[in-house]
């Protein structure tokens, strides 16, 4: 299962949070569109974090749009995981994988 079923989102636009929208795509690609208030300093780190997090969940056909307002790493990760779980709506969440 390397795709997501439908689009979904998680998070808010508020300070120290991130608003993450994900969409299924047809290409085998993790497509990231990042808008961040700390792009200059942490843009690459955030992109690495997102890629790693998506790969850990075994997903590779996905488009991710992130509005980041200076969220800490674990916030971004949690928001992204929440969005992916919402998109796939599994009955049982495999907590040990998160």
């Amino acid at each position: 299962m390397n795709k997501i079923d439908k689009s979904a989102y998680a998070g808010t636009l508020e300070s120290s949070d991130a608003f993450i929208e994900i969409k299924p795509i047809d290409q085998d690609e993790i497509r990231i569109e990042l808008h961040s208030s700390v792009e200059e300093m942490y843009g690459d780190d955030i992109r690495d974090l997102i890629t790693k997090c998506v790969q850990e969940l075994g997903i590779s056909y996905i488009s991710i749009k992130v509005q980041d307002k200076g969220a800490l790493d674990y916030v971004i990760k949690a928001r992204l995981q929440a969005a992916i779980l919402r998109a796939n709506q599994k009955d049982k969440i495999e907590w040990e994988k998160l």
């Binding site: 989102y9 808010t12 636009l13 508020e14 300070s15 608003f19 307002k69």
Partner: peptide
Amino acid sequence: EGLILSIMTNLINIAY
């Protein structure tokens, strides 16, 4: 104060 961001979040939630 960032109120607009909360308003927008609320509206986007409703739209979604």
